[in-house]
Amino acid sequence: MSFDLIAAILILIWIFIYSSSYGVWTWNKKNRIGGAAVLLVSLAALVFPLYLIFFRT
């Protein structure tokens, strides 16, 4: 675990939390599809890079 990696993961988590909180906010505003899509995007923004970092050879 290098420093770069830790920093990258921290930033990813921050992004995930921030954007998913926006998703929740949208959901609460009665925009169900929008909220779900935002949550999906924020999940993708967490999972995809992590997959690239850890699982791709």
Binding site: W14, I17, Y18, S19, S21, Y22, W25
Partner: peptide, 14 residues
């Protein structure tokens, strides 16, 4: 203060 900062930076606020 920490909680406020966290809330400001970590979560979406309108």
């Amino acid at each position: 203060l920490l909680r406020k900062t966290l809330k400001e930076y970590l979560f979406f606020t309108e």
